[in-house]
Nucleic acid binder design. Structure first.
Lengths: 343, 343
DNA sequence: AATTCTTACTAAATCGTTTTAGTTTTTTCT
DNA sequence: AGAAAAAACTAAAACGATTTAGTAAGAATT
């Protein structure tokens, strides 16, 4: 590998200043009155010597890295890996690379990661947060660090955010189950207690049930820590089963819960939907060919990514963002498959 | 946001040189004979002013970024997202962040991405390549850019690589199917034709079949482009079905193919394993609770990640790596579930 | 008492850009 | 012809660290 060619080499070999070369390089030649011929000469030399700008030097000087960060609870969760893929594509098309961090629903880890990424002068952050307050993000807003929250948000926060209408999603799920004639319904969610998506889904669900005079008994409203999901679900299902008080239907609040539920019902040889119906939140391609296939509330993953990236980019570039755009709520869809159909 | 504190501020406020501060900062104080008291004073001041080194400046000076790149064909593929998660954790524990790029099995895109990541002076790369020759990697070796190939490799290449024993995996799959009494077997893989994993799996599979005098007719050895996977599988299955010449078993060479196959068999109401058995390569948690659950050859994802990261780190740090370690081949497991069991 | 050796430190160069604040030369205007 | 304006360029500073090549002062050696 030959020595790296620098801007200085170009300048010297042409007998001009490096200021000039830099100007041409950044398409500011015209603005600064560099003659067209000189510009042409410089450009030719750049090609000839195969000059590649030193991105680090530039980043150092400009305080810009053309890199954004994506923080999610777990990149191997199918929902987030699809978000990641969409964002990565968008970023690539705009000359950005993306750094990915999994927070494990751990507030401290998330804090540390954000600190690290700030130190590294990433240009912006897209975050599905595990925080319990908006404090940190208020700080980020004050510090002027471009960022947008996806998936989970807080009431009245100042950071830009794009989420889906989880409340409506919960309602859709409830109305469908009611319509199918289910009344005895359990709900499986995850802790910590402050995750907005989970709560909105629950609230929407309960509100629609309440309208028909149906309620979920407290011991059927189950939240489990992320790490113990499988164990909890197994225990609870076993409990229900052995006590002979199986719910008629279960609403699982994310794709992992849905999977874990399916797996354990399977192990107990409980038939779906004959003995218990399953309605999930989040779609995953597999859910369409399991037997039975699984009814879900599906989120518009591409759209979330697009809106979030667009907002982030506009912040980075410093363009105006209207109040209306600062908090976007996207609609969800219900996909009715076999797991909820009463025979 | 208060002004950023630089090394110079520390130096001035203590009346020492920034050389001294830098030395203390990097634990080189003793080596350069800085007195313990001075070191203590400096450290105290650093705390007091809450100094955070400018990572960009340091990276620029040192040519090091503490960032590694991970290139895979598609981060939303479950196999790769789990690899990504493992590597991310390992990287985080060693003070590295990871940039992720999806290549879409596109040689040109991969080339561009590698170029970009080199420009950005990433410290190292972990790559599941889509290249058809080892040319590029030989160049990387010559250029001294630390990198490790995972998953896919080339014969006699000079880059470090860690893969699984795909050939053995193919054999295991074949022997199991034979043992169950299947003889008329189809294979679904992906193009391009040079992907080493796919070819090794096929060769292993065919070799074990051949030992029992069984062969796969050419029109049952199907390779489809990544992007058209679903369409191809649908067409082929329909074709088989309508022609009344269904294979007794199908070997699908990655998890996406397995899923697509399941989905389309489902649509055609073909029963598994009664009408056709399915054996997949790559395990995914869903495969354990689909009905039927799916037999697979499973790869040791964590182990692949660990070995690859370890090799990368040692390259970056410049430690010796023995010839033996330069090409690691890990064993695979067969997980027998319902989809291949003859009733 | 002059020389060498230690100890404890520092000045300045360096990395490769971008940008500020000019300078020099030529043209235009009155 | 002399002043003002425009055109075409440049020197040097700045970004914030690390590192090379020292220096100054005192202790030890001869």
């Amino acid at each position: 590998m030959g020595k790296k060619v620098s801007i200085d080499d170009i300048a010297k070999s042409l007998g001009v200043s490096k200021t000039l070369v830099s100007l041409v390089l950044n398409d500011k030649g015209d603005k600064h009155g560099i003659s067209p011929e000189t510009q042409k000469r410089v450009k030719a030399k750049i090609k000839e010597l195969n000059y590649q700008p030193n991105v680090l030097a530039r980043g150092f000087r400009m305080g810009k890295t053309n890199t954004i960060g994506l923080l999610v609870s777990d990149i191997s969760n199918r929902f987030y890996s699809r978000i990641a893929r969409s964002i990565e594509d968008l970023a690539w098309n705009h000359g950005y690379t993306v750094v990915i961090c999994s927070t494990d629903e751990d507030i401290n880890k998330e804090n540390e990661q954000i600190r690290l990424l700030r130190d590294r002068k990433l240009d912006g952050l897209i975050i599905s947060t595990s925080q319990d307050t908006s404090e940190l993000f208020d700080k980020l807003v004050e510090a002027g660090l471009p960022h947008v929250l996806i998936d989970r948000t807080f009431e009245g926060m100042r950071s830009l955010n794009v989420s889906v209408d989880n409340f409506a999603g919960g309602r859709m799920a409830a109305r469908h189950l009611l319509h199918q004639g289910y009344r005895k319904i359990a709900v499986f969610g995850i802790t910590p207690d402050h995750i907005s998506t989970i709560n909105d889904r629950i609230n929407g669900f309960l509100s629609a049930l309440a309208e028909e005079g149906v309620s979920v008994p407290p011991h059927w409203l189950i939240k489990t820590p992320f790490a113990e999901m499988d164990k909890t679900i197994k225990e609870k299902l076993q409990q229900f089963y052995q006590a002979g008080s199986m719910p008629e239907a279960i609403f699982t609040l994310n794709n992992n819960l849905t999977s874990a539920c399916m797996l354990n019902l399977r192990k107990l040889s409980i038939e779906i939907p004959r003995q218990v119906a399953i309605m999930g939140f989040d779609d995953v391609s597999f859910f369409s060919f399991t037997r039975p296939s699984i009814s879900v509330i599906a989120q518009p993953i591409e759209r979330i990514s697009e809106v979030a990236f667009d907002l982030l980019l506009r912040q980075i570039e410093g363009s105006k963002i209207s109040e209306k755009e600062k908090s976007v709520k996207l609609p969800v869809d219900i996909i009715i498959r076999e797991s909820t159909i009463k025979s």
